[in-house]
């Protein structure tokens, strides 16, 4: 990492840590907290789809498992948040492992539909397994997390609480992406048959990608439950899975930072469009279409294109 990059990172970090001082509006802070949670889901999705080339349209299913397991562990067994979260993440990973068994052999529309099916099965079980999940009414009174006796409950406290997870998530995902595992993921995306021929254990790596993406969604879900205080199957529909996929593709699914951009832009956009009321979703739909047609590699792709253009110009000048 060069010196410039280190300074930029430091500036961003300071900005992130002081953000609540500038944002006094609690509603805005609430949206930013949601962005943080969605960022975690999208990071997992980027590792799965952008790096490994496997699409999931059932990510809301993993998100739901994380939310319900973590919340129920706290509510029914009085477990502290971190222990409940750990169980939630582990269980979500197991779901990722299970779904990767059929998913390993699938690609294209077949894989998409298998993941849709998984997401719907989770939602329908949450809806019908009333003794445990309370059915359509959902869970209420999910406890707040506690660290060292301090209860996290205000939007500002949640901001710092969530941002730590997000920074850690970005760091870990970045390390995975740059490691041998990340490069193998990309090799599988480009040509899984060729990778297999080179001796790569394609099935194992595809499973790993599913488990990692499930872990991120499960972690985000655990935070989502305690942050919202209430939850119901309505928060984990097919439309929510689509919305995660849109964040991933529109931000740019080939980089980790694309996940942050996508989660931020789409969450803020859908809130900002509320002023249009009835036509809100129509405008949202048009923006989705416009973006994928004119920015095929997402918003981050556009920035990278500009960067390389500027670099080329500089090089041309220095050559003269």
């Amino acid at each position: 990492m060069n010196k410039n990059k280190k300074i930029y990172l430091l500036i961003i970090l300071v900005l992130l840590l002081t953000l609540p001082l500038f944002v006094s509006n609690l509603y805005y802070l609430h949206i930013i907290n949601l962005v943080g949670i969605y960022t975690l889901v999208t990071i997992g999705l980027n590792i799965l789809s952008g790096y490994t080339g496997q699409t999931s349209m059932g990510q809301a299913g993993f998100f739901a498992v994380g939310t319900y397991v973590t919340s129920l562990m706290m509510m029914n067994f009085d477990l502290p948040f971190f222990l409940a979260l750990l169980i939630g993440v582990i269980l979500t990973s197991i779901f990722g492992l299970i779904i990767s068994i059929p998913a390993m052999k699938l690609s294209g529309p077949y894989l998409v539909l298998a993941t849709v099916g998984f997401g719907e099965i989770v939602r329908l079980v949450l809806l019908n397994w009333t003794p445990v999940t309370k059915g359509a009414a959902g869970l209420t009174g999910i406890p707040f997390p506690e660290i060292f006796g301090l209860q996290i409950k205000t939007e500002k406290q949640f901001y710092y609480f969530i941002i730590i997870f997000v920074i850690l998530g970005i760091y870990i995902a970045g390390r995975i992406a740059k490691s041998k595992i990340g490069r193998t993921f990309s090799a599988i995306r480009e040509d899984d048959l060729a990778a297999e021929a080179m001796g790569v254990n394609v099935a194992g790596y595809k499973t790993a990608a599913f488990v990692i993406s499930a872990m991120f969604a499960g972690l985000a879900g655990g935070l989502f439950g305690t942050f919202s205080g209430v939850t119901s199957p309505d928060s984990f529909t097919f439309d929510d899975s689509i919305s995660f996929l849109c964040m991933s593709v529109i931000g740019g699914n080939k980089t980790i930072i694309g996940a942050v951009v996508g989660a931020f832009v789409l969450t803020v956009l859908s809130e900002a469009l509320r002023v249009f009321q009835g036509t809100r979703l129509i405008i949202y739909g048009f923006i989705l279409i416009f973006t994928v047609i004119y920015m095929p590699n997402g918003l981050v792709g556009i920035i990278e294109n500009l960067k390389s253009k500027i670099l080329m110009k500089k090089e041309n000048k220095s050559m003269e």
Partner: peptide, 24 residues
């Protein structure tokens, strides 16, 4: 989308966008 050689996932998202527009 065909002209810009966009990946298949972009067709998915664009037609989902169309679905949102038509529904609303």
């Amino acid at each position: 989308l065909r002209k810009s050689n966009a990946p298949a996932i972009n067709v998915t998202i664009a037609t989902l966008g169309a679905s949102i527009i038509i529904r609303n």
